[in-house]
Nucleic acid binder design. Structure first.
Lengths: 148, 148
DNA sequence: CTCTAGTTGCGAACGATTTGCAAAAAGGGT
DNA sequence: ACCCTTTTTGCAAATCGTTCGCAACTAGAG
């Protein structure tokens, strides 16, 4: 049960109780990462594992502890992604047609350096970059329809 | 009545009917620009000018015609800003404490050039950059409270 | 084992945005 | 100026992801 121990130690490290629901959520996130919604995570869990409200509460916790990042889609839906060292902050591409959000490769250190600094006296903690347009899948579909 | 004419010609140029509600909304936007919500614009209008639903519908039109830009706050609220030549696309700063969104100076042409290109075959139409952290106002408040 | 604070499930509340629909207005043609 | 068609509007109800209140339920310290 090394999985359990791993999840448990993560939970302990942020000073919250080790509950079955939390362990299972963390394990579900371990396999198959990427961008996900609270509802998607809830759907992945074995039935009855955790209420949707619990999923939301847990994800909010992870975000507060900086173990996860939160991205708000243009439609207002919240997306999450784990923030481990294997998955550093990176830009996203949001498709205007289908709404899908794609993760793009992280900026290289020297690329990041080239971002203009934020003026004013605001305390910047993070920068998010979102490209928008039509994704390759939707473009292919549009192309096909044009021919018909 | 040059204001009316101006607004009317804008509306005609995008091929929609010139109605009183639209002219008044456009005029309200002319004075006092910056970032605003549909509700804020609705509040600015003289009572009975336009229903909130009409405001939403009109703003969606403006966005579709690229006369306005849409920004989704972390809380899911939609913000709008006019997209005239006086107000080119620019980065924003969103405060994690108070939720306020500040407009930052537009990137200079050479700064923009330095943005890493979007990989994959996606068709990029725009890039949005949002800095996040604690705004100067909230920092000042926090500072004051710490002393008490 | 007990006790307490932290967690959970449930359902109701929320609130910004959207939508359906019938009434009202715009504006082209006559 | 008047019709007629089409667009636009107000109103109210619906949406729907997310949050909240609260009583029941644990985890885990002592």
């Amino acid at each position: 049960m090394e999985k359990f121990c791993e999840a448990a130690s993560v939970l302990k490290s942020i000073g919250i109780r080790v509950t079955q629901a939390r362990v299972l959520m963390l394990e579900a996130l371990h396999s198959g990462c990427g961008l996900f919604t609270a509802q998607a995570l809830h759907g992945k869990l074995p039935g009855g594992t955790a209420d949707l409200a619990t999923v939301y509460r847990f994800l909010a916790l992870l975000v507060r502890e900086k173990l996860a990042r939160e991205i708000t889609g243009t439609d207002g839906v919240l997306y999450y992604e784990m923030a481990c060292s294997h998955n550093p902050s990176h830009p996203h591409f949001e498709c205007r047609k289908c709404g899908r959000i794609y993760c793009l490769p992280a900026f290289q250190p020297e690329e990041r350096m080239r971002f203009p600094a934020c003026p004013h006296g605001h305390g910047v903690e993070s920068v998010s970059v979102v490209y928008r347009g039509t994704c390759s899948a939707c473009r292919a579909t549009a192309e096909k329809e044009r021919k018909e």
